[in-house]
């Protein structure tokens, strides 16, 4: 039983693989994930640079003991969280509908 199942989904795979919609979907995902990670890593590395070469700026006191360096440091958590939220929004808004479209096309073709 299972072999025939494999074979029939195999053709669906090929169909999807060939469709421009799927290529578009992959492109959308790649276009989001990679630049986002680069931006994200750059923001981390920029903080480290700032900390080493602009210690005066980082040491400016904002409130009592709390200096700019500490605030930006803690903001790293917030930014990580923000990026995840953006990613999830993007996926829900752009990736899922695109996948839905492909699915409808496949089902329509069958």
């Amino acid at each position: 039983m299972s072999t025939t199942g494999e074979r029939s989904t195999g053709t669906v795979y090929e169909q999807v693989q060939a469709s421009p919609e799927f290529a578009d979907l992959r492109r959308r995902l790649r276009r989001f994930v990679f630049p986002m990670s680069v931006a994200f890593l750059a923001w981390y590395l920029a903080y480290v640079l700032l900390a080493s070469y602009a210690p005066g700026f980082m040491a400016i006191k904002v409130l009592g003991n709390i200096n700019i360096g500490l605030i930006i440091g803690l903001l790293q958590f917030v930014s990580t969280f923000a990026i995840t939220t953006i990613y999830v929004r993007y996926a829900n808004k752009h990736l899922d509908p695109a996948a839905e479209k492909i699915r409808q096309q496949i089902e329509g073709a069958e």
Partner: peptide, 27 residues
């Protein structure tokens, strides 16, 4: 390779993954 990569990147909404896993469970 193309088939495997498709499997990795086709979103669940295509329904491909779930079928495959269910099949594995059955097997």
């Amino acid at each position: 390779v193309d088939q495997v990569l498709l499997r990795l990147h086709a979103p669940e909404r295509l329904g491909l993954t779930r079928d495959r896993l269910e099949e594995r469970v059955k097997r």
